[in-house]
Simulated assay, not measured.
Amino acid sequence: MSLSLQSGGSSSRVSASSFSATGTGIVAAANAAGNQVTTRPITTGTSVLGIKYRNGVMLAADTLVSYGSLAKYKNARRLLPVNSRTLIGASGEYSDLQSISDLLIANALEDRCTADSLYEEDNTNEECAKEVWSYLRAVMYQRRNKMNPLWNDVIVAGFQQNPDGSTSDTPFLGTVDKIGTAYEDDMLATGFGGYIALPLMREKYRPDMEEGEARALLEDCLRILFYRDCRALNRVQIAKVTKEGGVLVSEPYELDTFWDYKGYVSTKAGMGTDGGW
Rank of each mutant, 00 (worst) to 15 (best):
S2P: 11
S2V: 15
S2Y: 15
S4F: 11
Q6W: 15
G8S: 10
S11N: 09
R13M: 10
A21E: 12
T22F: 14
T24V: 14
T24K: 09
A29K: 09
A33N: 10
A33G: 00
G34K: 11
N35C: 12
Q36E: 12
T38S: 15
T38I: 13
T39D: 11
P41L: 01
I42N: 02
G45F: 05
L49K: 04
L49N: 02
G50P: 06
Y53E: 03
Y53W: 01
R54N: 13
R54V: 05
L59F: 02
A60G: 05
A60Y: 04
L64N: 03
S66V: 06
S66F: 06
Y67C: 09
S69A: 12
A71P: 14
Y73H: 04
K74Y: 10
K74S: 12
R77L: 14
N83M: 02
L87V: 02
L87G: 02
L87N: 06
G89Q: 01
S91M: 03
E93A: 01
D96V: 06
S99D: 12
I100Q: 02
D102L: 11
L103P: 00
L104F: 06
A106V: 13
N107G: 09
A108H: 06
D111L: 10
D111M: 04
R112Y: 11
Y119W: 13
N123H: 11
T124F: 10
E126D: 13
E126W: 05
E126L: 03
V132C: 04
V132H: 01
S134Q: 11
Y135C: 03
Y135H: 08
R137K: 15
R137T: 15
M140Y: 14
Y141D: 03
Q142T: 15
N145R: 13
N145V: 15
M147Q: 14
P149S: 05
I155L: 06
V156P: 09
V156T: 03
N162T: 15
P163N: 02
F172C: 03
L173C: 08
G174H: 00
G174Y: 04
K178A: 05
K178P: 00
E184N: 08
D186H: 05
M187A: 02
A189I: 01
A189C: 03
G193W: 06
G193T: 08
Y195D: 04
L198P: 08
L200V: 08
L200F: 07
M201D: 05
R202N: 10
E203S: 11
E211R: 08
A214F: 06
A216W: 00
L217W: 07
D220W: 07
C221H: 00
L225K: 08
L225W: 02
R228V: 11
R228T: 14
C230T: 14
R231N: 06
K240Q: 12
V241D: 03
K243A: 12
V247A: 00
S250W: 00
T257S: 01
D260A: 04
D260E: 04
V265T: 15
V265G: 08
T267C: 12
A269M: 03
G272R: 05
T273E: 05
T273D: 11
G275F: 04
G276V: 15
